[in-house]
């Protein structure tokens, strides 16, 4: 797999420091898990963060070493027993990170387009979902004030920014007004995180808006 499109550096940096919204974090994680180039960048940021931690001005803890050892000897507080079984997993060959997610109901939102929300209860203002689009579909043409993060999982699409295949990451912000076209002979499956006010143009956008609810 050749990945040609990567997240911008500041997004990777915010990912590395844990400052991204949960939905955005998920899309960057899915890209980085299959992109050695970006995972190196994230490691570099973690390295710099480690150096900053090492040099941070220490603040004495109120908890003593003895108290910490007592906590350790108690064993894990929360019975980290069976992790909750992911619900609603679509029948797709998904990356491991997504296989541990909870999914909402998959719905057909337009001819050739299906959407399945990912349930992220800790998420702030962005929403994540899987989007299936049939070959030849013109996806939402839109512009918005927030951001839109996409990682292609299967198939491909193209817009003015280039051709996006599996693993490729597309970052859209307020300056972008794209109308992606799904290419090739196979459906495109993409993971998308969206935030902000979305202004949709065209028939598909109007159909999808109530489902994306942004």
């Amino acid at each position: 797999m050749t990945i040609n499109h990567h997240p911008p550096e500041d997004l990777l940096a915010d990912f590395a420091t844990g400052s991204l919204d949960e939905a955005d974090h998920l899309v960057v994680a899915v890209h980085a898990a299959q992109c050695p180039r970006c995972s190196r960048f994230i490691q570099a940021m973690e390295h710099l963060a480690g150096a900053a931690l090492e040099e941070a001005r220490p603040i004495a803890l109120s908890g003593t070493f003895k108290a910490i050892m007592a906590r350790i000897d108690e064993g894990p507080a929360e019975p980290s027993a069976a992790a909750p079984v992911p619900a609603g997993l679509p029948d797709e060959d998904l990356p491991d990170i997504l296989r541990r997610c909870h999914f909402g109901k998959r719905r057909r939102v337009a001819p050739g387009v299906k959407l399945q929300p990912i349930i992220l209860p800790g998420a702030g203002q962005s929403r994540a979902f899987l989007l299936w689009s049939a070959p030849g579909t013109k996806m939402l043409q839109h512009s918005h004030t927030g951001t839109e993060l996409t990682c292609v999982l299967k198939g491909s699409f193209a817009h003015e920014g280039g051709h996006y295949g599996p693993g490729d990451f597309d970052f859209g912000d307020g300056e972008v007004d794209h109308q992606p076209l799904v290419g090739g002979g196979e459906p495109c499956l993409a993971l998308v995180a969206m935030s902000g006010d979305l202004k949709l143009h065209g028939w598909l956008g109007r159909l999808i808006t109530p489902f994306v609810r942004l």
Binding site: E22, L26, A33, I97, H102, L120, G122, A123
Partner: peptide
């Protein structure tokens, strides 16, 4: 520390939305 901070932030966000499944870890 970063992952614990992320967990804490998500737990706080979740508190107002009870009965939601817990989020997956980031692997």
């Amino acid at each position: 520390a970063r992952n614990l901070r992320i967990d804490a932030a998500r737990r706080a966000a979740r508190q107002s939305r009870a009965d939601q499944p817990t989020e997956p870890d980031d692997g």
